[in-house]
Simulated assay, not measured.
Amino acid sequence: MINKDLERYIPIANLMAKTFGKNCEVVIHDLSVPQNSVVYTVNNHVTGRKVGQTFDHLVKQVLLSKNFDGDYAANYKTITEDGKEIKSSTALIRNSKNEVIGALCVNYDLEPMKNMKNFLDDFMKVEEEKVKEEVEPFNNVIEIVDDLIDKIITNTNVDTLKRKEKIELIKFMDNKGIFLIKGAIEKVAEKLNISKVTVYSYLDEIKKNEEER
């Protein structure tokens, strides 16, 4: 069942999809359940997003983007598994306590418009990242990622986790860019009751296994 605070955004998602047509996909994420964050989609044929899936670009292309400001990052490029070029924008959703609880994502399929590119350059432009002044610290990015780590691990009994299960959790977080944040490895090690060295060894093992595929 969708969170009531997030449910309010369903009419907005529907409005955006209706306004910009079938090539505009809108997705609502519930970040209290990171592994299954997608709770609502419209026009999900654009990227194939389904309810129950996890987020893809939140950390790497939104929270760590130099264009991330005012709780949103707009007009960054993503590529679907079948090679389609997508223009994406993401805004964080906060509750009445100013806590980040979700995200509203817009994905626009640019493929049908390529034949009109000369006329639509301004619309299709993917902005280059702008260097901005140093902020304190990362516009609450560290706090947001720490909260994601807590939620990813919260629903597991750390004391009974087997080595393979710990590696799967670390692989999930690595894929989502969690470890790009300074101090994330130390925090995860503490939460899983293992050493920082062990986390690094698991990451090395994950990388080696992927290279052997």
Score class of each variant (00 low, 15 high):
residue 58 L to M: 11
residue 82 D to T: 13
residue 124 M to S: 07
residue 110 L to D: 00
residue 176 K to F: 03
residue 193 N to H: 12
residue 213 R to P: 06
residue 195 S to Y: 04
residue 28 I to K: 03
residue 9 Y to H: 15
residue 194 I to A: 05
residue 131 V to F: 12
residue 5 D to I: 10
residue 122 D to G: 13
residue 175 N to S: 03
residue 130 K to I: 07
residue 206 I to V: 11
residue 99 E to F: 02
residue 132 K to Q: 06
residue 207 K to Y: 13
residue 16 M to E: 09
residue 12 I to G: 08
residue 175 N to T: 02
residue 186 E to L: 00
residue 173 M to W: 08
residue 57 H to E: 10
residue 118 N to E: 08
residue 89 S to Q: 04
residue 70 G to I: 04
residue 78 T to L: 07
residue 207 K to T: 08
residue 44 N to Y: 04
residue 209 N to F: 11
residue 82 D to S: 00
residue 84 K to L: 12
residue 124 M to K: 03
residue 163 R to E: 13
residue 153 I to H: 10
residue 100 V to H: 01
residue 79 I to L: 11
residue 111 E to N: 01
residue 55 F to N: 00
residue 102 G to M: 01
residue 161 L to N: 07
residue 134 E to M: 14
residue 119 F to L: 08
residue 71 D to A: 04
residue 115 N to T: 03
residue 202 Y to M: 15
residue 145 V to L: 05
residue 28 I to E: 02
residue 66 K to M: 10
residue 52 G to Y: 05
residue 47 T to Q: 03
residue 123 F to T: 12
residue 54 T to D: 10
residue 98 N to T: 01
residue 187 K to G: 01
residue 68 F to I: 00
residue 102 G to C: 01
residue 152 I to R: 10
residue 164 K to T: 05
residue 84 K to N: 07
residue 77 K to Q: 02
residue 43 N to D: 03
residue 128 E to R: 13
residue 33 V to K: 14
residue 91 A to K: 03
residue 202 Y to T: 11
residue 104 L to I: 14
residue 87 K to P: 03
residue 192 L to Y: 09
residue 79 I to P: 06
residue 139 N to S: 13
residue 191 K to I: 12
residue 34 P to I: 07
residue 77 K to S: 01
residue 151 K to G: 07
residue 50 K to T: 12
residue 19 T to R: 10
residue 175 N to Y: 09
residue 187 K to I: 08
residue 64 L to H: 06
residue 84 K to M: 06
residue 27 V to W: 04
residue 109 D to W: 00
residue 158 V to Q: 02
residue 121 D to E: 15
residue 157 N to P: 11
residue 36 N to K: 06
residue 34 P to T: 02
residue 94 R to W: 00
residue 23 N to G: 09
residue 198 T to M: 14
residue 102 G to H: 00
residue 5 D to Y: 10
residue 129 E to P: 08
residue 152 I to W: 09
residue 37 S to D: 04
residue 210 E to Y: 01
residue 88 S to L: 00
